[in-house]
Design a binder for these strands. Structure first.
Length: 718
DNA sequence: TAGGCTGGCGTTTTT
DNA sequence: CGCCAGCCTA
């Protein structure tokens, strides 16, 4: 491959970015502007034209999925190995670093990763142990606090208590939590980053080694970096490394979990000679969709400023539908989905996006009723499922006996007669000895400090784990996992659970064995450790049904980075989107608007916006007006669509309330038999709304059940 | 120790 | 309204 191939097909701005010689570059990449393409081609350029060795390159992403995709696109483009290149998430790379330098990092060699669920359990225990007021110190609040401190790079000892008793207690628990992690060799997600940062501060020779090694660092989704991630990057980059960060301030939607949009501004201060390149040409959407997106985001103050444009088609106007209620909204969406299928659009080319997960239920129900296949993104990840966590906990304990989180999780799962009482005694002893629960158990049995029954139950448990430990050394990973899941009794335990749930859990456990079978280790001698790390750091692809044709359902947050020919943005209402919480808190509205911008720019060809005039929300009837974001879209970009006819009218016309005949006041009532000119005779099952918005559900004798707009259906009572 | 009941709570999500 | 955690009872 020569130089021209690498730059071929790129626009001038993309070429500038790919071939730039400046030491630091900030690429402001608008939605759909070929950001990943630029990153991948940049790496190709470095290797092919600049003869940079892959081992001198580091590429950082936020998700494992993005890392995986980047790696595969690089090897696809270059047709040779990317071996030696560090491509991964911030957490993944930090973890790799700590594994290499565990001793300098002050860790034990076999340290394990504590995920947020385990973290919460540990905190609950600490709250009880320290007898805190459970109303003021909820586990969630403390977890939030600790993670926030770590994301800001602060340890308990660094925090100023400002003489505030509440803060004092929080710091105390933070510090107790640090001790507990120390004892059981646990490192949580924030800790990975914090410790990786600290190791460079503490050990300049290690830092220097990596600074010499990584001559080129590339960062994706830079607007999502938090304080510690940016500090880590800055240290690593030093003043010799070439650093390219790619991001979009308009797509920063994770401020609420610590992402600092300011890092983008800060970047050009910290690296004064930074070359700023804007990618504004969009290859995804029609110009009308871009016009709408640009108009919405223009309302945000303090933007770095970008304007997306396309030389493609103007496209069709956006459609706005005002549903009477959320069921009506869902009905409209599914009706449109089916009609697009009629024009040769696949289901999988259509996505329904919403602000919060609670909205999905009504849409799902309508999809099911219509027999339309769908797939929900998000939800619980594979390795977060209860049964999987149980299975993995057995493997973890077999790998390291001092893993208290794993120990607590499975000591009585399935139940084996070791109750709370016994566990409590174990905890007290462990605390006295400053030892693991495992050692405490051994000690208490040896000293006959437990009742006969408890003692023998506990001994059986310990024996089982020791046997698993031996099995881990004698068997392949998949043989081991099969053995553990079988002998632990988890299959029976979960299989007994009521209904489909139990069945699904057994299937998931089988899937866990399957995952170990397919797992490929970098170092075969360390395969168990590597698998356990993956289980903690990687969500586990939900590959089921990925290839079947189905409508895609997801939140706006999970839609970031994806694109669909047809997008339905549901629930564009005040209080829902922008969300009530964000309206009330100052400064949060801008992020909601960016979320809206993300949503609009997912659509390639058609964009539908829908809302409900009345919505049942937490059991209450709520009446929200259309979202302010919709009103920020120029009215000539939008058509308001009415069901069952094609009359479009401008948004500003508002609703007429009195002209047409009504549902309840027109002689129609539930159970009434009626005649329709096309569908024939039927009986009224349901009436919703009044006046021009009334919808009537009629079960026709021959045509089945249909929802009709009363004002157009012209139903005649029989 | 399982299972039933109640009360509290209820954006967004990755690692 | 619906879910889940945690508590209480058989």
């Amino acid at each position: 491959m020569d130089v021209s191939t690498i730059l071929e097909g790129l626009n001038p701005a993309q070429r500038d970015a790919v071939s730039c010689d400046e030491q630091s570059m900030l690429v402001l990449a608008g939605a759909g502007s070929g950001k990943t393409r630029v990153l991948v081609h940049r790496i190709a350029w470095l290797m092919q034209v600049k003869s940079v060795s892959p081992s001198n390159i580091m590429a950082v992403t936020f998700t494992n999925k993005a890392a995986k995709e980047m790696r595969s696109r690089i090897s696809g483009l270059l047709q040779f190995e990317t071996k030696g290149m560090w491509v991964g998430t911030f957490h993944g790379l930090a973890h790799r670093l700590l594994k290499s330098h565990w001793n300098d990092a002050g860790l034990s060699e076999n340290f394990q990763i504590l995920d947020s669920d385990d973290q919460l359990r540990v905190l609950k225990r600490l709250i009880k142990e320290h007898q805190l007021d459970e109303n003021r110190f909820t586990p969630k609040a403390i977890q939030w606090y600790i993670n926030e401190q770590k994301d800001e790079g602060r340890r308990a000892k660094h925090i100023d208590d400002r003489n505030d008793p509440y803060e004092k207690t929080l710091i105390k628990i933070y510090s107790e939590y640090e001790k507990s992690c120390e004892r059981s060799s646990h490192v949580d997600f924030g800790e990975l980053l914090l410790r990786a940062h600290e190791i460079w501060l503490k050990k300049p020779d290690i830092l220097e080694h990596y600074q010499d090694r990584f001559k080129y660092i590339l960062v994706d989704e830079f607007q999502d970096t938090n304080t510690i991630q940016y500090a880590w990057l800055r240290l690593l980059a030093g003043n010799k490394t070439s650093l390219m960060v790619v991001g979009d301030d308009d797509q920063s939607i994770y401020g609420w979990r610590g992402a600092k949009i300011e890092n983008i501004q800060q970047f050009s201060n910290d690296f004064p000679s930074t070359e700023i390149i804007k990618l504004e040409q969009n290859y995804r959407s029609t110009s009308l969709i871009l016009e709408a997106a640009n108009a919405v985001i223009a309302n945000n103050p303090g933007r770095l400023g970008k304007n997306l444009w396309t030389d493609g088609e103007r496209g069709k106007p956006l459609c706005l539908y005002a549903g009477f209620n959320e069921q009506d909204e869902a009905r409209f969406i599914i009706e449109r989905i089916k009609s697009h299928v009629g024009d040769d659009t696949l289901l999988s080319e259509q996505a329904v996006l919403y602000r919060s997960n609670a909205q999905s239920r009504v849409i799902e129900e309508e999809l099911i009723r219509n027999g339309v296949a769908y797939r929900i993104y998000g939800g619980q990840r594979f390795y977060d499922r209860l049964e999987i966590k149980n299975g993995v906990a057995y493997m973890r304990l077999a790998y390291a006996r001092n893993d208290d989180a794993a120990f607590e999780r499975i000591i009585n799962t399935p139940s084996r007669g070791i109750g709370h009482k016994t566990v409590e005694i174990l905890r007290i002893r462990a605390k006295e000895d400053n030892s693991s629960l495992w050692s405490a158990a051994e000690a208490l049995i040896a000293e006959s400090k437990l009742t006969r029954r408890a003692s023998s139950a506990l001994q059986n448990f310990l024996d089982m784990i020791l046997q698993f430990c031996a099995a881990s050394k004698n068997l392949d990973l998949d043989g081991f996992s099969e053995h553990v899941i079988d002998k632990s009794g988890l299959i029976d335990f979960h299989g007994k659970e009521a209904g489909e749930k139990g069945l699904a859990r057994v299937e998931n456990l089988q899937e866990l064995i399957n995952a170990t079978r397919q797992f490929e280790a970098e170092d075969e001698n360390n395969i168990l450790r590597e698998f356990l790390d993956t289980a903690a750091l990687d969500a586990g692809e939900q590959q089921a049904d990925e290839h079947s044709d189905a409508v895609q359902l997801m939140t706006l947050h999970s839609a970031k980075g994806l694109e669909f020919p047809i997008v339905y943005l549901a629930g564009v209402e005040e209080n829902l989107f922008p969300h009530k919480m964000s309206i009330e808190e100052p400064g949060r509205l801008e992020e909601e608007r960016r979320l809206c911008y993300v949503g609009i720019t997912r659509a390639k060809l058609h964009l539908y916006l829908t809302y409900a005039e009345m919505r049942r929300w937490y059991g209450q009837e709520t009446y929200n007006s259309v979202s302010r974001f919709v009103r920020e879209i120029p009215s000539d970009c939008i058509n308001e669509v009415r069901i069952n006819n094609n009359v479009s009218r401008p948004l500003s016309a508002g609703f007429s309330n009195s002209t047409l005949n009504e549902g309840s006041g027109s002689g129609l009532h539930l159970g009434q038999r009626v005649n329709h000119a096309i569908f024939g005779d039927g009986v009224i099952l349901n009436i919703e709304g009044q006046d021009s918005n009334a919808r009537v559900q009629v079960n026709f004798d021959n045509a089945g059940s249909k929802w009709l707009v009363a004002s157009f259906a012209n139903l005649k009572p029989i």
